[in-house]
């Protein structure tokens, strides 16, 4: 049986990736996957050596052939996303407004509109000093990261099966939307990294509202706990009401940032730090 753990945070900037990287430094026979495909950062600490690269098809790129178009305007009228505009006398598609529904292409009376799959995304299989990593790079403004998350996780699973590894550790995406759902479907354990702020408190509630719908075990960690102990206690209370066990409180540690500057995990940067000790405890608890 391969166990799968996803680290989540709700709001960004709580230290999710820094924590995930630290856990990676402690892991044995584990495959890592970066599901935070929109602005992924885990690679900045794990320094992957890319072994395989795959393009990943995503949304449609729609274009109008100026020479064929009769400027009848039917497409612009039908488009619900206001994505087709008259520009210097001819109709053009604004890729940033287009949802890729292809209605314009289907109704154009002279077949002047065509669409192609955008090939702006890539995903990789890499080697790191801690073990194999599957990660991705999404083109800016690209859609569809839920499907990319599924692809990344699938590959991580395959690698774990091939190598006979017992664990997969996923760095999850922020928020509570589609990519997050894709990153927790079918996993055994979710570790929530939060921070003592009013947004942190708010997000814990929304996130547990989502994870509660899945059959999995959820743990919480409050990072930078001492920045606002009072708010920290409020989150502790909230977690208790929600029935989510709080397994660790990590104090604010400037060395967490410094280790990032050096491209290292806190475990390597400062093996004797209090945060290192706490992170070891977290790893033991979640892999028990």
């Amino acid at each position: 049986m391969i166990r799968e753990i996803t680290v989540l945070s709700g709001k960004g900037g709580t230290g999710k990736t820094t924590v995930t990287a630290a856990l990676a430094a402690l892991a044995k026979t584990t495959v890592f996957s970066d599901c935070d495909v929109d602005a992924a950062d885990l690679h900045l600490l794990l320094h992957p050596e890319i072994i395989e690269a795959y393009p990943f098809e995503s949304g449609w790129k729609v274009s109008i052939d100026k020479d064929v178009c009769t400027s009848c305007g039917m497409c612009a009228e039908a488009c619900r996303f206001n994505a087709i505009h008259l520009h210097h006398g001819s109709f053009v598609v604004d890729p940033y407004q287009c949802e890729g529904c292809r209605l314009c292409e289907r109704i154009c009376p002279v077949s002047a509109i065509t669409s192609q799959r955008s090939m702006n995304n890539f995903w990789y299989v890499s080697d790191t000093r801690f073990g194999p990593l599957v990660h991705a790079q999404m083109g800016p403004g690209e859609e569809n990261s839920g499907k990319l998350v599924t692809t990344v996780r699938k590959k991580a699973k395959e690698i774990a099966e091939d190598l006979n590894f017992s664990l997969i550790l996923n760095d999850g995406p922020p928020g509570i939307g589609c990519p997050v759902i894709s990153s927790i479907t079918g996993v055994d354990t979710v570790v929530m990294i939060t921070e003592p702020s009013s947004s942190g408190l708010h997000d814990v509630e929304r996130l547990v509202g989502l994870t509660g719908k899945f059959n999995l075990e959820t743990f919480a960690v409050i990072n930078k706990y001492d920045l606002h102990p009072e708010m920290g206690r409020k989150i502790e209370k909230k977690l208790a009401t929600l029935g989510v066990p709080l397994i660790a409180k990590i104090p604010f540690d400037e060395n967490m940032v410094n280790s990032m500057v050096w491209g290292k995990t806190i475990i390597e940067f400062d093996p004797n730090a209090e945060s290192t000790r706490i992170l070891r405890g977290i790893w033991e608890t979640i892999t028990k």
Binding site: D38, Y96, M138, G141, E142, E143, G175
Partner: peptide
């Protein structure tokens, strides 16, 4: 805007 660089950010900035 939302964090990140995905389509929801693009539509906020649009």
């Amino acid at each position: 805007a939302p964090p990140g660089t995905s389509c929801s950010v693009v539509s906020t900035v649009a």
